[in-house]
Simulated assay, not measured.
Amino acid sequence: MTFDRWIELITTMIAICGGVYWVIKILLQPLTLQLKQAIAKVDSTAEELHKYMDDQYKMRERLIRGDDKFANHEERLKNLEIDVDHLKDKIK
């Protein structure tokens, strides 16, 4: 084969590959758009889940703090009941 034939063959192969590439790109474009939309939905869902998890941890911390306050109030009430019982015993 001559040099001109090689150049012609290479040019034809480049043109065919370019055409196939563009056909595949056009055919797969709707799929890529759907994939991008799905990825965006997954990202937004992940952000919402992180937000809900943070809210859950905050509520848990508040509940724990509330339980500590409740325990303190319960202890004070017990002490008051003991003091009242002692005063009743002194009065009798």
Rank of each mutant, 00 (worst) to 15 (best):
A38E: 13
M53Q: 13
V20C: 02
K69I: 11
I16Y: 05
I39T: 12
S44M: 08
D83Y: 01
Q37N: 14
M59S: 15
R65T: 08
D54V: 08
I91C: 00
I91Y: 08
L33D: 10
L80T: 09
A40I: 07
T11Q: 12
K69M: 02
W6N: 10
D67K: 09
K58R: 15
E8T: 14
L35D: 05
K88C: 02
T32F: 14
T11P: 03
K90V: 00
D4W: 09
M53D: 12
K58I: 08
E47R: 13
I39H: 10
K36R: 11
T11D: 09
E81Q: 14
L87S: 01
F3S: 08
L80D: 10
L49E: 14
E47T: 11
E81C: 07
H50S: 11
L63I: 13
Q29R: 05
H73Q: 12
I64M: 07
L31A: 10
L87Y: 02
E48W: 03
E75P: 00
L80C: 04
E81I: 03
I39V: 09
D68T: 07
A40T: 13
I7A: 14
K36E: 13
V42C: 04
L49T: 11
R5K: 13
G66A: 14
D83T: 06
L9S: 12
H86C: 00
D89E: 15
V23W: 06
M53A: 11
M1T: 13
D85M: 09
I7V: 15
W22K: 05
L28W: 04
L87F: 04
D43M: 04
M13C: 08
E74F: 05
P30E: 04
E61Y: 04
E61C: 01
D43Y: 02
R65L: 12
P30V: 04
K90S: 11
D68K: 04
I91R: 08
D67R: 11
I82N: 03
V42M: 10
Q34V: 05
K92E: 04
R5M: 11
D85V: 00
Q29E: 08
L31D: 09
T45Y: 02
L77D: 07
K41M: 08
M1I: 07
G18W: 03
Y52W: 07
V20E: 09
D89M: 08
D67C: 06
K88G: 01
I64R: 06
V84W: 00
A15M: 03
L33E: 13
R65H: 07
K78P: 00
Q29I: 02
D43C: 00
K51L: 10
T11W: 06
L63S: 14
F3Q: 09
E81L: 08
Q34M: 10
F3T: 06
K78I: 12
I24D: 02
